[in-house]
């Protein structure tokens, strides 16, 4: 589904990603962990198409298509979704209107007609129940006045509504209390299937107690320096990142 080959990117001329390789197949959940400043969020932003990040090398293929050539909206319509670490509040843009427009655009790209108002509201209700996000969205602006937890849950609701093939969760666990964390994780677990895939970017192991990844990768200084299974996450939680940094430095010298 996704092949990242030697991906390099910089921000304001400073290299952040220095050659990332990653392959994600349908049905898989990959966790990307790493210390602060290792390039985790940069990777998510580059995949989503944020123009503030300059891709300086490498390639990314998504479902056989060159992802890096697509503007952000085409990536979304092709089935890529990013749950933001800091979802933006947009006063004056209604939640419902926004979701409806997004869904209509994505369905049109797939050759599907727009949902009727009734079908849409029905689907919204189902998905709200699925992700346990029962805040009233009617007559409310996008994320406006939402708590940190509500914003993250709204991201998962959007994920449920838009049904992407690949979802990237950028530090979705940050700022969540344990109940909200569990609810978000339950949502993801209900949404996972053999046809879709998830990349979960996180600093901590705790989210991975609820969403069991198939693979865990450690990103450090712009490269994936170690990959393993879920046990790697436990090991990191126990030992911290220092032992990996040291082992990398040792192997370099």
């Amino acid at each position: 589904m996704l092949q990242i080959k030697n991906l390099q990117a910089s921000v304001n001329g400073e290299p952040i990603l220095k050659g990332v390789d990653l392959e994600v197949k349908a049905g898989e959940i990959h966790a990307i962990m790493g210390p602060n400043g290792s390039g985790k969020s940069t990777l998510a932003s580059v995949l989503a198409g944020n123009e503030l990040y300059e891709v300086t090398g490498g390639e990314v293929w998504f479902e056989g298509k060159n992802l890096l050539e697509m503007p952000p909206e085409i990536r979304a319509r092709e089935g890529l979704f990013m749950a933001f670490q800091y979802p933006v509040e947009i006063p004056g843009v209604s939640n419902i209107n926004f979701l409806k427009t997004a869904l209509t655009e994505i369905r049109a790209h797939r050759g599907l007609p727009p949902l009727s108002a009734r079908e849409f509201m029905q689907r919204l209700k189902e998905k709200q129940e699925l992700v346990e996000f029962n805040a009233s969205l009617v007559n409310r602006s996008l994320n406006e006045g939402f708590s940190g937890g509500e914003k993250k849950r709204n991201e998962i609701l959007q994920l449920a509504m838009l049904e992407p093939r690949l979802a990237i969760l950028d530090e979705t666990d940050s700022g969540l209390d344990i109940d909200a964390l569990r609810i978000v994780a339950n949502g993801v677990n209900k949404l996972r299937s053999k046809d879709n895939a998830f990349i979960i970017i996180t600093h901590y192991q705790r989210l991975l107690q609820y969403i069991i990844p198939d693979f865990v990768h450690v990103l450090y200084d712009g490269r994936i320096i170690k990959s393993g299974t879920k046990e790697l996450a436990y090991e990191l939680e126990e030992k911290g990142y220092d032992w990996i940094k040291e082992s990398v430095q040792a192997s370099l010298s």
Binding site: A48, N50, A76, P87, I90, T101, E105, L162
Partner: peptide, 30 residues
């Protein structure tokens, strides 16, 4: 135009034109 909001809307599949229109209407909404 708020570039951060524009990017957010585009990552949800809205074209740049639609996203800009939506943000301008939101600005006028007050």
């Amino acid at each position: 135009m708020n570039e951060e909001a524009l990017f957010y809307l585009r990552t949800r599949g809205l074209s740049e034109l639609t996203a800009r229109q939506l943000l301008i209407e939101a600005f006028a909404y007050d």
